[in-house]
Design a protein around this nucleic acid. Structure first.
Lengths: 253, 253
DNA sequence: AAGTGGTCTAGACCACCGG
DNA sequence: CGGTGGTCTAGACCACTTC
């Protein structure tokens, strides 16, 4: 009865490659193990290096692989769950939060931020840079925008720009009564400075968490936090850190 | 004093290209407008087509462009905010939720899901397929896994697999008292079937939202929802649908 | 049929890391 | 220094949409 359509819808080579590699990772490799280099792998599968790289890129995006220039490609550990929404109503900097203040500068915010802040045009803000670690790896970089009007006590003070000043701003912020907050998550690509802090190349995929803090009927602060999308799973909700397993986890011997 | 390092750290061409294009999109293009085709654009910028495509890919990832095979590249509208965490404690299918049940089958869940469910090995589950629209565009596809033990009243019934059965399962689920829920977000790439439903190519970047529903001291259901990462911004928290603007929004004339 | 984006090739050179 | 992944090229063909 006519020809069977064995390959009437031929899937792309890189897609098939990805499937094969995924299965190999599940069955034959352990976390931390080093894969053969791209040229060898491409030759072994009989494809061009660019095609192989297309498959590797997807696997890195999915958090299965980790590639570092000059070093090689290794099997990545399962994504770490980082709590984002547990502290239901808490200002940044409150005891127990996992961020570390780096420094603080004053400037006129970029228009994108100004729109979220709904601030008057040209109003200056304190910008607190913070970073977040997990398992001694950097997982997120944050810019906290706080209109100078939100922390009036600081307007006359000129503490040295730096971590000390950052902590001073956060302390002042905590004197306000937090009226509520608002969060959104979207995909983005790392700016050059964030990439450096996250130990990735510029343009690496990141999860951008935008948080608005409300107090006294207006937006008192806005946080833009970029998380490494390859290594992080953002967790929300009641049970915070409960473990969700994804696939086999084995350690290299 | 010697040579200035004007280009000692030359940024990659595609990165510079992305910057130029971003500025052009902000200032000279309107939402929905069609860009020149890739071959022309590449020629205009004096780069190979592959290099140009690297820039376009990033811009599509960031939700600035939309590319469709056989059609062309258009300027994308701002991402739509889709509420994910507003209904603090509600079973799926409750009035007011934005999902539409598609069908329902019974099967033994894949190991990944079985681990999250913490179910006995080999226990069958109802799998309810649902889809979610926004602005008459598909934005998410969901698989809801419900152990048959969670809805015992259905065990003797053999309703026809389909939307009717899906609704029956959801009705039964709502008879339980919801004890809490648990959510996580991570980056993934669309499986072939999800991609089709989301009108994307396989491997397209998606935001995977994993939700566990607890009742009677155990995991009563698990939802795996995949959202289009290019068009969606997931919103959480108190004020749900409040508008966050990102960049200029102009309409094509 | 013509035009679009998607896949693939076989090369080249560069930036980075380690010994 | 040699080896790794990252960038880039100039082509080719394919799958898809539209006319």
């Amino acid at each position: 009865m006519g020809t069977q359509q064995l390959e009437s819808v031929p899937e792309p080579k890189y897609w098939h490659l990805k499937t094969v590699l995924t299965e190999a990772l599940d069955s034959e490799f352990s976390v931390g193990e080093i894969l053969p280099n791209e040229r060898d792998l491409a030759a072994r599968f009989g494809v061009a290096r660019a095609t192989l790289r297309q498959a590797l890129e997807q696997l890195e995006l999915e958090g299965r692989l980790q590639r570092r220039r000059g070093v090689g490609t290794t099997v990545a550990p399962p994504r770490v769950g980082v709590a984002v929404g547990t502290e239901q109503h808490a200002w940044p900097g409150t005891v127990g939060d996992t961020w570390q203040a780096v420094d603080c500068v004053d400037l006129v915010p970029p228009t994108v931020v100004a729109e979220i802040l709904e601030s008057v045009h040209g109003e200056r803000v304190h910008v607190v840079r913070r970073s977040r670690m997990s398992h001694s790896q950097p997982v997120a970089a944050e810019l906290l925008y706080i209109p100078v009007g939100s922390v009036p006590a600081l307007s006359g003070i000129d503490a040295p720009a730096g971590a000390a000043r950052a902590r001073a701003v956060l302390r002042e912020l905590q004197r306000l009564e937090l009226g509520g907050q608002d969060r959104s998550v979207e995909l983005g690509s790392a700016r050059a400075d964030d990439a450096k802090e996250l130990d990735r190349l510029p343009g690496a995929p990141v999860l951008v968490v935008t948080t608005r803090f409300f107090a006294e009927g207006r937006t008192a602060a806005v946080s833009l936090a970029t998380y490494r999308a390859d290594t992080c799973r953002l967790t929300f909700g009641d049970s915070g850190g409960v473990e969700i397993h994804h696939g086999p986890e084995r350690r290299a011997s």
